[in-house]
């Protein structure tokens, strides 16, 4: 019994130290840095400046941030439109088909995403698989410019993040009693009414969770924009990376990071409030 308590204390304090050293402390440093002038070093420079945060709202940076958010929102929407029916089919599929279909979702999930992004290049480039296929079918006369466009980045984001949408949706469908669908039909609801009044409300936690899990990373996956989108920095993630590694403007990068984290935090808070309001109680 006493050993047990000691073990627990060790375990908890170990975790706390780990989180503290590797997450909280660096983040505090980042926070402090964001209030410095350009070239400032946290250990020497003093003073508090909001200049970096003001710069975030300069037209160039702000419109980049809005574009990035729109791209992320579009990614989340397409993932939802593809993932929702897929998750439903997944939960309805038989004992043999379900593990197989799940495996199809998981395999890309387990593969290094850099490798998968380079694989997409082979699909998308001028003499790539998609273009040669379309040319051979006679649907186009000359290769489409897919690479280094926002379309390519969009495809890359959807492809990479789709499993993050499907898995929470699948969990939500699994938690739902499928007989409720029959109950709805029994009481006179057609397929559309059943979807809107029963299936969507009951899978809402999965819809929200999946959307968050796609939207938030889609703001920051700079390497996808690098490989598929070319030199233009399209995502918030690219901008932050460039501030740190290209322009060496640590305080500006820090400020952008903090702003992005705050935005994510607000979204997560909204999610928490929404999931609490939708009763939570119905997820037994």
């Amino acid at each position: 019994m006493k050993d047990n308590i000691l073990f627990r204390k060790l375990l908890i304090s170990g975790t706390l130290i780990w989180v503290g050293l590797l997450a909280v402390v660096p983040y505090l440093i980042l926070l402090r840095t964001s209030f410095l002038e350009r070239g400032g070093e946290i250990l020497q420079a003093a003073g508090w400046s909001l200049a970096n945060y003001t710069r975030l709202f300069s037209p160039a940076v702000f419109s980049m941030a809005v574009d990035s958010a729109l791209l992320a929102a579009g990614t989340a929407l397409l993932c939802l439109l593809v993932g929702y029916p897929f998750a439903y089919i997944l939960v309805r599929s038989g004992e043999k088909a379900q593990p197989l279909l799940l495996l199809l979702v998981m395999i890309p999930f387990w593969t290094n995403s850099l490798i998968r992004t380079y694989a997409l290049v082979i699909m998308l480039k001028a003499d790539g698989i998609i273009n040669s296929l379309l040319l051979r079918l006679g649907l186009i006369d000359q290769p489409l410019q897919l690479m280094y466009t926002s379309v390519a980045v969009f495809i890359g984001l959807v492809y990479t993040l789709l499993p993050f949408m499907i898995l929470p949706l699948f969990a939500a469908f699994k938690a739902m009693d499928l007989q409720l669908i029959e109950a709805g039909r029994d009481l006179g609801a057609g397929p559309l009414q059943t979807l809107l009044r029963i299936i969507v409300p009951l899978t809402m936690p999965g819809i929200i969770a999946g959307t968050m899990l796609v939207f938030l990373p889609a703001l920051g996956m700079f390497y996808i924009a690098d490989i598929l989108g070319g030199a233009r920095s399209m995502l918030l993630g690219n901008y932050i990376r460039d501030q740190f590694l290209v322009f060496r403007d640590l305080p500006m990068g820090a400020a952008a990071s903090v702003a992005m984290t705050v935005a994510m935090g607000i979204l997560l808070l909204l999610y928490y409030l929404a999931s609490r309001r939708s009763g939570g109680g119905h997820l037994k």
Binding site: D177, Q179, L180, E182, A183, I198, L202, S278, H282, K284
Partner: peptide, 9 residues
């Protein structure tokens, strides 16, 4: 229904 299938929401 056997398990009543009431709409929990």
């Amino acid at each position: 229904f056997q398990n009543y299938a009431l709409f929990p929401h």
